[in-house]
Design a protein around this nucleic acid. Sequence first.
RNA 1: GCCUGGGUGGCGGAAUAGGUAGACGCAAGGGACUUAAAAUCCCUCGGCCCAUAGUGGCUGUACGAGUUCGAUUCUCGUCCCAGGCACCA
Length: 863
Amino acid sequence: MGGKYDPKAIESKWQLFWEKTDLFGVAQEPDRKKYYLLEMFPYPSGKIHMGHVRNYTIGDVVARYKRMQGFNVLHPMGWDAFGMPAENAAIANKTHPAKWTYDNIDAMRTQLKRMGFSYDWNREIATCKPEYYRWEQWLFLKMFEKGMVYRKESLVNWCETCQTVLANEQVEAGMCWRCGKPVRQKNLWQWFFRITDYADDLLAYCDKLPGWPEKVITMQKNWIGKSLGAEIRFPVENSGDHIAVFTTRQDTVFGATFMCLAPEHPMVRELSKGTAQEEKVSAFIERMATQDRSVRTLETYEKEGVFIGAYCINPLNNRRMPIFTANFALMEYGTGAVMSVPAHDQRDLDFARKYGLEIVVVVAPPDRDLESATLREAYADEGKMINSGKFNGMDSKKARDEIASYLEEKGIGRKTVNFRLRDWGISRQRYWGAPIPMIHCKTCGIVPVPEKDLPIILPENVELPEAGGSPLHQMDYFSKTRCPACGSSDARRETDTMDTFVESSWYFERYCSPDYNTGMFDTGAVDYWMPVDQYIGGVEHAILHLLYSRYYTRVLNDLGLVKYKEPFTRLLTQGMVCKETIHCPEHGFLFPGEAEDRETKKFCRKCGTEVALGRVEKMSKSKKNVIDPDILLKKYGADTTRLFCLFASPPERDLEWSEQGVEGAFRFLNRVWRLGETWLDSIRSVAPFDGNPDDLNGEPRVLYKKTHQTIKKVTTDIEERFHFNTAISAIMELVNAMYGIETETKAPDTAGVMRFAIESAALLLSPMVPHFAEEIWEALGRKPSILKAPWPSYRKDALLKEDRMVVVQVNGKLRSKFIVDADTEDDTIRELALADERIRKFIEDKPVKKIIVVKKKLVNIVV
RNA sequence: GCCUGGGUGGCGGAAUAGGUAGACGCAAGGGACUUAAAAUCCCUCGGCCCAUAGUGGCUGUACGAGUUCGAUUCUCGUCCCAGGCACCA
């Protein structure tokens, strides 16, 4: 201290001190309790953005807090370094994805260090390094051995003009984002992980994750989407074939009047072949291939279909049912075929009306009659069975069970479980990813790469095609190889790379032994550190990343590599930092700095055109609605930036970006600083008071109690809810209280209490503004680092309140309040309330019906 | 569209078990200090109403109903916003 608060000077001073003393480096210490705190690692996009700053500040507070509580804290950081933006940047700037990525990593590492986060940088990893992904390839081979991986045909977005596969993000309104031409669906052979084998287990464990937010659990359950139902076989007319359908409403089979197949269903072409409908069907399939799959499932989307020229037979009543192919039937769900029951399903009803199909009511609601001729809304609820042969009169719920059994008996169906969850397609037709270690041999077929040949290194000497897409399959020196089985030279490597979600499904294990080179990780290290005690990241990952990680952990568990099934014991999903987007008709999305304010409007700096202000949405590089934290860092320093992020809102809530308030955070730190300056001389050589509050009187007594109350408030706010904003408010109140005390006060205990209060404030603030707290701590004559000091504890006897405010209501409306001693009985409070003059005015002579007394808090008089 | 959240002053937010709505901070306005400014400190601050200016009245937590002595909090319905929807990460 000494002089003005100068964040730049003290922040670099302490960052150097931490680095020199390797303060954040950790090792396994079997006797100490470990705490693994993990934040979702970033994609190295070039600069950290406010979302990172918020996420990592929250994590850092918890890491430092747990450390002060005596835990051996593992707090690592690394890079989710494979992914599409590197390829896009490579095309745009003619830089190699690897160079772009490593440069970005260097820049972002510097920024993170500048923020003062307590990472053990010795454990840094980057997933694009062969030392990392070789073990992912190794696991792929193990999974292949165990039959946990397979290949099948599946659809991708294909741009004919660019001759390339597009990510969903690269398709804008059905058009290619590069050339603007329509995108079509194309079938490719791709690799899949059998995540559905674990669907039941993943679902069951949802209820064994008490440390996870309820909403994430609910989303995962719904995503897995287990439904009980039946598979029923409908024979195709004049053919030995049959169509299998999955339904949860087998009680309505008697009402099934037609059949709908997904356009991709193999039987569509087969059955329409040679019929008058063949051409129409073919055209429909073609048209559907050009449509976005997610759009197809919209309920508002016009339902349409084509009769395929064939019929099937309802196995329960022998009704002849026309077979359609329809846009709302999805190949990915169930069997790709839907038995349509128009009376009891709205979608089917719309379709039946449109094409004039038969409607038969089979479930009668308890309170009214359904007329199939006039039916407008399908009846999807329970009721009494009608028009259903021997099941008539039965309750539909019961019939569901009975019909399922009956189908099983007759051999035309069976009870079954269906999941919405689909297998995880991991093939990417991209360059910047981990190569899939497989070989296609002309004679042997698919052959795994022998373990000794790992890693299959991604070749660095490449040029990316302008239109996007992977150059790997054209690179003979990479893809031409010998078959490891027969030795033939007529073999080619798999040129697909893995989905980047695979890397992020096990990086937390790798952190435990980042340099281990004889396996994925050192079992001893993983046994000590895993599972992650607290995981922190954006809600946008609530389903995919978290579910994939849970799945991958089960695979590791089944292969005997880890002892646990769930990787993350507690989860905090932080809300997003959002901002409005700016869109120039000429130049597309603009960064905030690329638009100029003139009066109330904004204009593009490049072309001067007025720009459109878009929705407020998640800050992302592709939308350019990002704020560069460097500006805050330069102007105010890391501590103010951290404090502001924490104070702005509770972590789980979304935060619409606004700079208002940063000034306040800075001002607060200055306030604390000056408080230290003012008192330093009078408290430097005094021991902090830590006795019984009853030994104090007057202002010191009040301040002493307030300090203990603040310690309690801050501790529970962090411990129970991570509500740093209210914790900071409490410290602000404490500081305000300290300002109320005059330096000249001659009360004997003032200095001791003041020292206690200032030290407590420094300790409580230290996880949030660590550089600042170190500086104060040192000025008070304490030995650095403050991180090694224990977290303060509070005295119960200092928390007791001496008096209480009682609120008096008449008919629920606030009419009066008064203060009583904390030990006043309820009866006395009631008498005091009734005797209150302001209350009597409201009661007048009306009879008192009821009096409610809430202990030492409130009286409500009902008249 | 489906799944999951959210909506409280001019703004960020608080109210943790149904019990004083607006803690703490920002912005704004007024005042003190200063030759002046910055910084700092003090005061006011949801809206409306009043001959009584008060420890005053009414109203107010997206909207509409309901449960309750009492609802920001619970229930039902509506509107709006955000996230996810399987190749952005």
